[in-house]
Amino acid sequence: MKKKRVLFYNGQLLMGGIERVLTSYLQGLANEEDLEITVLIKENDPEKNIFLTDIPKNLPIVFIKTEEMVKFRNEIKAKRKKNIFYKLIYPLILAYERLYMKKWLRNYMKANKDKFDVVIDFDMSLGKYLNIIDLPKIGWIHYTLTGKLRNKKKELRFKRRLEKYDRIVAICDEMKEEAKNLFKVPEEKIMRIYNPFDIDKVGREKEIIEEEDKEYLKEDYIVAVSRLVEGKGREDLVDIYNELHKDGIQEKLYILGEGPVSEKLEKKIKEFGLEGKVILVGQKKNPLPWMKDAKIFVHTSYGEGLPTVFLESMIAGTPVIAYDCPTGPKDILGKNQYGVLVKTGDKESFKIELEKLLKDEERRKKYIEDFYKEKLHEFNIEYIRKQFKKLISIGE
């Protein structure tokens, strides 16, 4: 049996949604007898590459930038705000790294031209280097494309990049339609594949709970999980909770994640006097115990891809209420069949719907039961594995 030889590329293995999905694919495909997979990662950063240990041991991993190179750049980056010399040389280091990567990729692809049948640009960050790769190329769209339209120059550049891929994957139906309508991607070139999810893994996952966290889980609470960045709408969530608190809500709000808006959130929590009620828990590699014991999972993002955290929460038995942002929430929650969707940015409606859901335990249970019966199978790794093999059969 001839094996299909696949090179999976991704920039990093940070604690992020794309990286989590990548490891799900690699774990689900690692033992397929008709596949031979190599993993190519741009940055060798042991401190930040949290998901490195989750890649199956039988898959070879190749790094483009060395650990020393990444460490040196990060040190310069940290010093540039306090020293003009480092501020001046930092752009030069970035320019050198781009040249280094281009040369490295050219040499690597030349030396391994007969080793691979297809290249998957999983986070679509190979844009500047696609011409170097003389193999069938697959690009993976993980996020809404509407933001690409804000700048005509960037829009045109992205359209040209999409044209360089032989096939494109969109991770939800809305995203597929965006690619077709906004960037004129032909129907035959694009395929919708949901992010894979090892459903049984939720039950097998070791519940790693630090000793100081156990007290938190004894409380009644609602939970949010994401990186703490502007687009995730976590300030909206604190505003919404503040209004609920005025109405006498007893449940606490736990916000899991780290990121640049954490200081803003801390300030807002103090301004509202919500210390001890809204808790910034920090980053947790395994958020499942926090999801499982919550009453409701809340999500106020202004843009998504396909939010895997919804699946994790619902498989763990906790229903979701979310902004109906482009794209992804509707693919999981349907038209309010499996959870609650609220118009994006409508904090008042979100507050009203969340309050009603907190008081209605039967409705919370029904959302989960219906999701298990009618929708969950579409995200099963076994189902998606078949779609993946169809995807990579380019030229067959």
Rank of each mutant, 00 (worst) to 15 (best):
K2E: 14
K4F: 00
V6K: 01
M15Q: 01
G17E: 00
I18Y: 01
E19D: 12
T23E: 14
E33R: 14
I37C: 02
V39D: 04
K42Y: 01
N49P: 02
F51Y: 13
F51R: 03
L52C: 09
T53L: 07
I55N: 08
I61D: 08
E68R: 05
E75I: 10
I76A: 11
N83P: 04
I84P: 00
Y90K: 04
P91D: 03
L92S: 06
R98V: 01
L99R: 04
L99V: 00
M101S: 13
K102I: 04
W104G: 02
N107Q: 14
Y108F: 15
K115M: 11
V118Y: 01
K128F: 03
Y129D: 09
Y129K: 02
N131H: 07
W140H: 15
H142K: 13
G147D: 13
N151M: 15
N151L: 14
R157Y: 15
R157S: 11
K164G: 01
K164Q: 06
Y165N: 03
D166P: 01
R167S: 03
R167I: 12
I168Q: 05
D173S: 08
M175H: 07
K176C: 11
E178I: 02
E178R: 03
P186I: 13
I193R: 09
N195W: 00
F197S: 10
F197M: 15
K201P: 00
V202G: 05
G203L: 10
E205L: 09
E207M: 14
E210G: 07
E211D: 04
Y216W: 12
L217S: 10
K218Y: 01
K218E: 11
E219K: 15
D220E: 12
Y221S: 02
A224D: 06
L228A: 09
R234S: 06
R234H: 14
L237G: 04
V238E: 03
V238F: 04
Y241D: 08
H245C: 14
K246I: 15
D247F: 06
D247H: 05
G248F: 11
I249T: 05
Q250N: 13
Y254H: 10
L256G: 00
E258Q: 02
K264V: 07
F272A: 04
G276H: 14
V281P: 00
N286W: 07
L288D: 11
K292A: 04
D293Y: 08
A294C: 09
A294D: 07
F297D: 01
Y302E: 11
G303H: 11
G305S: 09
P307S: 10
P307C: 06
A316S: 14
T318D: 10
P319T: 03
C325M: 05
C325G: 00
P326Q: 06
P326L: 10
T327D: 08
P329Q: 07
P329W: 10
K330A: 07
K330H: 05
D331H: 06
I332A: 05
G334L: 03
K335L: 09
Y338F: 07
K343F: 04
T344V: 13
G345F: 12
K347T: 07
F350Q: 11
E353Q: 07
L354R: 04
E355A: 13
D360Y: 07
E361N: 06
R363W: 07
R364L: 00
I368C: 10
I368S: 07
F371P: 02
K375L: 05
K375Y: 06
H377W: 12
E382M: 14
R385E: 13
R385F: 12
R385I: 14
K390F: 03
L391S: 01
I392G: 05
G395P: 00
G395C: 03
E396I: 05
